[in-house]
Amino acid sequence: MSETKIVDARNTFCPGPLMELIQYMKRAEVGDTLELLSTDNGTVNDVPEWVNKVGHEMVSSEKIEEVWHIKVRKTK
């Protein structure tokens, strides 16, 4: 069963949103979707760049009330 896990990386400069996402992706199961919450505007470019390079899948990305919600599916 795949599930969506929330990774709350709002207001963090270190380790920062992408580093948090990588950490959780390593522990997730193939097929899981992770939803990253971030208040850092750079995240909206940083995450797809990494996801595409590794070969995971970008599901969606939207800003709701100053918080980015970025969904990524683990594919391998």
């Binding site: 400069f13 270190c14 920062g16 992408l18 580093m19 940083d46 760049e49 990494w50």
Partner: peptide
């Protein structure tokens, strides 16, 4: 690991 040389910008 990420797209700059340290996580703190």
């Amino acid at each position: 690991p990420i797209n700059r040389i340290h996580t703190i910008e």
